[in-house]
Design a binder for these strands. Sequence first.
DNA 1: AGGAAACCACTCTAGACAGCATGTC
DNA 2: CTAGAGTGGTTTCCT
Length: 721
Amino acid sequence: MRVEELKVSEKVKLILRKRGIEELYPPQEEALKSGVLEGENLLVAIPTASGKTLIAEIAMVNTLLREGGKAVYIVPLKALAEEKFQEFRDWEEIGLRVAMATGDYDSKDEWLGKYDIVVATAEKFDSLLRHGSSWIKDVKVLVVDEIHLLGSRDRGATLEVILTHMLGKAQIIGLSATIGNPEELAEWLNAKLVMSEWRPVQLRRGVFHQGLVVWEDGEVDRFSSWEDLVYDAVKRGKGALVFVNMRRKAERTALELSKKVKSMLTRGELRKLKELANSLEENPTNEKLAKALQGGVAFHHAGLGREERVLVENNFRAGLIKVVVATPTLAAGINTPAFRVIIRDTWRYSEFGMERIPVLEVQQMMGRAGRPKYDERGEAIIVSTTENPGDVISYYIKGKPEKLFSQLSNESNLRSQILALIATFNYRTVREILNFIDRTFYAYQRKDTYSIEAKIKEILYFLMENEFVELTLEDEIIPLPLGTRTAKLYIDPMTAKVFKDFFKYIEKDPNPIGIFHVIALTPDMVPVSYSKRELSKLEEEYYSLKDRVYADDPYLAYDPYYERKFFRAFKTSLILHAWINEVSEADIVEKFSVEPGDIYRLVETAEWLIYSLKEIAKILGASQELLDYLEKLRVRVKHGVREELIPLMELPMVGRKRARALYNAGFKDFESIARATPRELLKIEGIGAKTVEAIFKHLGREVKIVEKPKKNTLDYFLNKQ
DNA sequence: AGGAAACCACTCTAGACAGCATGTC
DNA sequence: CTAGAGTGGTTTCCT
């Protein structure tokens, strides 16, 4: 179908033409003819990269142009929010204002209410709902991207609750991967269902086993090893994406592959790759990455720092990096297609032992094969070492993906959501809560809510016992300040309870080790693990810091579960403590065997939790002194600095390293910097022209610095050519 | 006795969301 | 039951 024939405003067609879209893909056509343009709900279950976003965009904009109001587009990842936000800004040309809302970024200067399209993560939107933002009532369309994540254990309930709140109030458009029970989901959503296996790039799937690739169509190709599948792709001028189930394996495999891939590169490529490798900040993880990069191969997993991740993604897309070996980070994340996808593992370790990786996930990985516009087809190959290739084909390739199951009844999810209903949505009785539950996917799927009723009552008891809510004489459940604050802070009620339980100790003797240990004992903290060999060192450290730790001695009662939890939290506490004492990232990586990406996530979460601890402390009647102490600690965690650097952290382009350099050079506050000459600041290690300009601008002084380009910077290379 | 190879038991394992505070008919 | 790489220590075997 041609764009011309579409029954939408000329404005929409204008933007589509600008993007170079003249023709719609068959599933797009089917979806747009389903009634979604007339305002009906829609569930689209089609493969990745077959144009789901465009369907939602057209429907969204169409409704906005027809009825006004707002559209909200929900994504599962912050990185994805950024990607969609940039894409959607195309619509600004026809007067639609686009915003993004995630935990660490809100479209600045303006209130979200001024925008027409808001891209948000699920949790952020849930939080906005809880805060009762007035513009919510104007939401006419809600798009939920990757709606199959409704079945994910830890985050699925959020989507389910958002949808339950919005059903009937806004048009719902769900975009899903292929799932086992799309009909059931569509029925719950009261949506038209559009399913298709169509892809813009043909996909050929197969299994590699003992020197042979057996394709789904029965054909067979010979390769001496799975690595040859990679080399073959590179030789043909294409790229390969290898999925593995362990970080360590991703790194090792990348290094291994890079040796041979290196010999297939041109001199120009080698030079650029070397440049790329040199640009990395120094730490153990990056050293490995740099080495692999020089052979045109990279690994990609959550241990990489943000910059490194983006660097790998961009250069892989641009074709400079030929091969990426990744853990599932790349499977559901941002768009990184490759001609050939190789899946090395179909098993994964979990807390219950080894588990099969779900069909849904493997199919999403395979879906990354084939780059639209570059390849006429993509290839996805599962490597099977022990299993019968026929079985693998029937299970993962011909097999049906898993059904989606509601995760609402999961205790921690339910606890948070029940509290939110009472504290932020004014639900007052068990009856009202059950009426809400009746409208969820959980109830739709289970047909009865009997089993969940008992759980809800248990949760209510927990909430009352811990003073989140109370029962009035008229048998109404009303929220108490602790409950309201907890729901709005978006922390698990159990986290708030931990804060409350330790409050009296914190109040008596506030200290970073003890406070970090407390936040690390909450269910909201990122889990950090320690190896058996680390334990004795942790024990030693604990005994030397014992008087600063609030929690009970881990060996007081014989409880291996508590012991593990205690030392995990203790390790987290030591890492954060090192961080705020300006221990370098490389040293933390070395000492605690965590990676840069882990540190970022830890720090990010810790900052949020310390803020939350401060807010809960306020409710518990903390002194101003304690609140100030916690605020300082929060800032220190945010930037990873000692107390004396706090004033410098407001400067633009100044992080922990530059702040320390300034301080040591005698620039301890704004006044001393304002009196300095640019030349004086430039002499300081790590401070360049751009930083000095930004600093002075912040202090109200315009300075322009003309500088000779430094070695190994982009300018340096640009000038050289 | 010395040293290398073979063997065995044991350890370890993916990812990533959330606060804040806005303004007007 | 269902994986596979790495590690570290011990045994075995050969000279």
